[in-house]
Amino acid sequence: MNNSIIYALDFDGVICDSAVETAITGWKAACTLWHDMPTAVPQVMIDQFRLIRPIIETGYEAILAMRLLYLGETVEAIYSDYGDKIQSLLQDAQITVDDLKKLFGETRDVWIADDLIDWVNMNPLFDGVTAKLQQLGRQHIWYVITTKQERFVKQILKANAIELTDERIFGLDRNMSKVDVLKELLKQHPNTTVYFAEDRLPTLINVLKHDELASVKLIFALWGYNTAEDKTLAVQQAFTLQQLHNFLEL
């Protein structure tokens, strides 16, 4: 195994195409808060959610996003005023972010308990990624850095026969930012090159602001949840832009 290089990979949008599952979980959870919403999520809402997925940082936000879509907000309107719209919903519902995180996780737990196979099927890995990660595990040390709760990452990796020990999954449970995790990995692995693959442009730009992370090689995952504008802006930044086939060839 080559220990001179380690990989830190975001999960949703880099490893897993979880947009449909996130939309459905968000809808299910929203239905428990707002009883005017029908139990079954309309397909058009799932399609619209995929369009706004790039601005969602953490899964619980899907609850608010699906509520906004149900209320008739357009994709364009949500993009233009996302922060204010979700703050308004939080105030109207008298609910906190921590409440939403708990509700989102519990809603997933119920779905998994009721039909694990269906839940896993709604979380497909991107084409070729399963074999890539199985190969990566034989050649390099690698980590998952995600805003997803760790138990869900473990379920999906296990379902795809991908082995990764618990200490190599840094999820929402740890209350660490991705910047903090990368700093920790540099401490744990001195004299190594760390590659960090991420599909959210703001996350990568934030990493660039930290001088102590200057040695981290940043990969912008173009196959993930980002917009045409993100891709244009990314060209001007000090990181590598990769299509999925480039990542698979690493």
Results as ranks from 00 to 15, higher is better:
residue 11 F to M: 06
residue 16 C to I: 07
residue 23 A to S: 14
residue 24 I to L: 05
residue 25 T to E: 04
residue 29 A to M: 10
residue 31 C to W: 04
residue 36 D to R: 10
residue 37 M to Y: 06
residue 38 P to T: 08
residue 39 T to R: 05
residue 44 V to F: 12
residue 44 V to S: 15
residue 45 M to H: 13
residue 48 Q to E: 15
residue 50 R to T: 15
residue 52 I to Q: 07
residue 56 I to A: 09
residue 57 E to Y: 11
residue 58 T to P: 03
residue 68 L to K: 07
residue 83 G to W: 06
residue 83 G to M: 10
residue 93 A to W: 15
residue 93 A to K: 08
residue 96 T to S: 14
residue 104 F to C: 11
residue 105 G to L: 07
residue 107 T to Y: 11
residue 111 W to A: 14
residue 112 I to K: 06
residue 120 V to E: 09
residue 120 V to T: 11
residue 122 M to D: 09
residue 126 F to T: 02
residue 129 V to K: 02
residue 129 V to M: 10
residue 130 T to E: 06
residue 130 T to L: 00
residue 132 K to G: 05
residue 137 G to Q: 01
residue 137 G to R: 02
residue 140 H to Q: 08
residue 140 H to F: 07
residue 144 V to R: 00
residue 146 T to W: 02
residue 151 R to Y: 07
residue 155 Q to H: 09
residue 157 L to T: 10
residue 163 E to V: 13
residue 164 L to P: 09
residue 167 E to S: 14
residue 170 F to N: 00
residue 173 D to G: 05
residue 175 N to G: 15
residue 181 V to R: 04
residue 182 L to F: 03
residue 189 H to N: 08
residue 189 H to F: 02
residue 192 T to I: 04
residue 196 F to I: 08
residue 200 R to H: 03
residue 205 I to P: 00
residue 209 K to I: 06
residue 211 D to H: 06
residue 216 V to S: 00
residue 225 Y to H: 11
residue 225 Y to G: 10
residue 228 A to T: 10
residue 229 E to L: 15
residue 233 L to G: 00
residue 233 L to W: 01
residue 235 V to W: 01
residue 240 T to D: 01
residue 247 F to Q: 12
residue 250 L to C: 04
